[in-house]
């Protein structure tokens, strides 16, 4: 990956000439998805196409007869974005060989429901078969499009409409699944986490993911003011706090080598992150301390695990 056009500053991100997502879409103010899409489409050169799983990004950008997409865009169903992308990729490869049709860069967007849950099988199959695409999970940690139901990406203790902050069970009892580790277990060459508060890091990771022959997976922290219940102006601040509290470690796995991109030597108190979001506020009540402790343990264990993987512990 020596000749990659990696950047050092946000000023190097290509400007207005390279916008592929038109304004006027119906994504919520403060949603992390449009920023993700814009940066991804700037980082990946032409020709390029997008495959989109059913979800917020899909419904909010393609309300017929309008579309925000200035490049070819395909939506098939909820759980099959990776399978659809696999078919597109296989077809372009053989058409290139037989008929000289040029294969575009293939980018897949799926939410956490479409990736962690219902689409996990299709994703696993596509990763195992080695289709050449960049799969990006924009993770807003619940089924936001259907009205904030818990997914296997919802962190422990978070309140959703199907894991409410009840008097007996205060939020989601189970811990969050590790998507990057699942992706890495397929032996793929590149997987990484990303976050909108670190756009340079995000941009460079997309460049690297795109450069890989075969599949690459990006797991993106997608702030959701509606589902997490915070003011839209706080999106980036919350995203940054997720990194600074070790909730969302920024790391990448290149050919099995783990590298922590933003080292958090001294984490900020988790409470700073939690108190800003309605979904977590109940955890700060004394009677729910047991759940808060479990969440803290998840975060601590995950960080220690990452240090071991990165050869730092």
């Amino acid at each position: 990956m020596s000749e990659l056009r990696l950047i050092k500053s946000i000023k190097e991100i290509p400007g207005q000439k390279y916008e592929y997502l038109a304004p006027g879409h119906r994504l919520c103010a403060g949603c992390g998805a449009p920023q993700l899409v814009r940066i991804v489409l700037k980082a990946i050169p032409d020709p390029k196409i997008v495959i989109n799983a059913t979800g917020c990004l899909e419904v909010a950008t393609t309300i017929y007869p309008y579309s925000s997409w200035k490049i070819p865009w395909v939506h098939n169903a909820f759980e099959n974005a990776a399978a659809t992308a696999g078919g597109v990729e296989a077809a372009f490869k053989i058409l290139e060989k037989k008929f000289g049709v040029k294969k575009p860069h293939i980018i897949v967007f799926g939410g956490d429901g479409g990736t962690f849950d219902i689409g996990l099988q299709a994703l696993s199959g596509a990763l195992e078969r080695g289709h050449d695409f960049v799969y990006i999970c924009y993770d807003n940690e619940a089924y936001m499009n259907t009205g904030i139901q818990r997914s296997s990406a919802t962190p422990r203790g978070a309140a959703t409409t199907t894991s409410p902050a009840g008097t007996v069970i205060p939020g989601k009892p189970e811990r969050k699944k590790n998507l990057v580790e699942i992706a890495v277990a397929h032996g793929i060459e590149y997987a990484a986490t990303a976050n909108p508060a670190y756009p340079v890091d995000l941009y460079n990771k997309i460049v690297k993911a795109d450069a890989v022959e075969g599949p690459a997976v990006i797991h993106y922290f997608n702030p959701c003011p509606t589902g997490w219940r915070f003011d839209p102006s706080l999106s980036i601040e919350i995203a940054r706090l997720a990194v600074l509290t070790r909730v969302w470690p920024l790391y990448e796995v290149e050919k099995g080598e783990y590298k922590i991109n933003v080292m958090i030597k001294k984490p900020r108190p988790l409470e700073e992150y939690l108190e800003k979001q309605g979904r977590f506020r109940h955890l700060l009540r004394p009677e729910n301390k047991w759940m808060l402790d479990l969440l803290k343990k998840d975060i601590e264990e995950n960080w220690k695990w990452l240090l071991r993987r990165a050869g730092l512990a």
């Binding site: 099959n80 696999g86 597109v88 990729e89 296989a90 077809a91 049709v101």
Partner: peptide, 14 residues
């Protein structure tokens, strides 16, 4: 499910 999903994607390429 993925068989038909992949076929849909492939058919869209022509």
């Amino acid at each position: 499910h993925s068989a038909l999903s992949a076929t849909v994607g492939a058919a869209l390429t022509g």
